[in-house]
Design a protein around this nucleic acid. Structure first.
Length: 278
DNA sequence: CGATCTACCTGATGGC
DNA sequence: TGCCATCAGGTAGATC
């Protein structure tokens, strides 16, 4: 589900909706969502804390607390953060309910239960959450020059889609946006990183930055299963602007003649135009 | 070291 | 209808 644009959409909404609020109580249901520490520890460290900010690194959300702790949230495939009222009915797959002292709740909903919440001390995050320390450059949060991009690209010979989705090199790009970025750059998913001309490197760099920002502008992508909705339960709109993802057999939006092709790469569906991408 | 697979889950969909 | 296989935005860990 959520990749950088969806997580960033939720981050911006959280910034408006929950910063300044104090956590009154935390209810953990089920055993999978809070698995790195006991639910009791998570509750103890959250209850009474005031939220001071919401940051994002790649696909991770970092909710900053006035206690010096961070609430780290990863939505994985099917996680959602949804605002709710105490009187609202709690859906079947709601695994964590955070209630604020001023009223209102935040629900963590996740049918597939791959998503995760945990609390760490902000100053111990690198030791206690090594997966965060390993993240590469976030192309939206940490704008980089195209020469920096080129250096990272050329230092790691691999196929372009593997490069784009490697969270330790660039943080935040997943299966949808890798395909959309490669289409925008006019490059095939299986081109090698070290085979690109400097013009192609610049095209890819521009495509990374522009595609992600454009997707954020449209509130991210929601597919037919509606696994991604924003804080207010609303779907994104960027799927209407996809050029290749989920468009197998439909005409390429650039050349308007050739059908979008679908193949499998690294076990994932991969969409591309066999003519416009070289 | 990289690549390839498998596991973690529920639910939707399509073929028979 | 039902049953079974396949697939879905992600990532970590095992194995080769």
């Amino acid at each position: 589900m959520p990749e950088l644009p969806e997580v960033e959409t939720v981050r911006r909404q959280l910034e408006r909706e929950v910063v300044g609020r104090r956590i009154k109580s935390v209810e953990v249901r089920g055993t999978r969502t809070v698995r790195r520490q006991s639910p009791e520890e998570l509750q103890r460290r959250l209850e009474g804390a005031r939220i001071t900010g919401v940051e994002r690194r790649g696909k991770y959300l970092l909710v900053e607390l006035d206690t010096g702790d961070l609430l780290v949230i990863h939505l994985r495939m099917s996680g959602q953060l949804v605002r709710a009222a105490a009187k609202d009915e709690v859906s079947k797959h709601t695994h964590v309910i955070i209630t604020f002292t001023q009223g209102g709740q935040l629900h963590f909903v996740d049918p597939r239960t791959f998503g995760e919440l945990f609390v760490v001390a902000a100053d111990a995050i690198d030791e206690q959450a090594p997966e965060l320390a390993q993240l590469g450059i976030d192309p939206v949060d940490e704008p980089m020059s195209w020469t920096t991009f080129a250096r990272v690209l050329q230092a790691h010979p691999m196929k372009l889609k593997a490069f784009l989705t490697d969270q330790s090199l660039l943080a935040g790009i997943g299966n949808i946006y890798a395909d959309e970025i490669l289409f925008a750059a006019g490059l095939r998913y299986d081109r090698m990183t070290d085979s690109l001309s400097s013009q192609e490197i610049r095209r890819l760099y521009r495509a990374v930055v522009e595609t992600l920002h454009e997707a954020i502008r449209y509130g991210g992508s929601t597919l037919a299963d509606e696994q991604y909705v924003d804080l207010h339960g609303r779907p994104g709109q960027f799927q209407e602007h996809h050029h290749v993802y989920n468009r197998e057999h439909q005409p390429c939006r650039r050349c308007r003649r050739n059908p979008v092709l679908k193949t499998k790469f690294q076990g994932r569906a991969t969409y591309y135009c066999g003519v416009c991408q070289v």
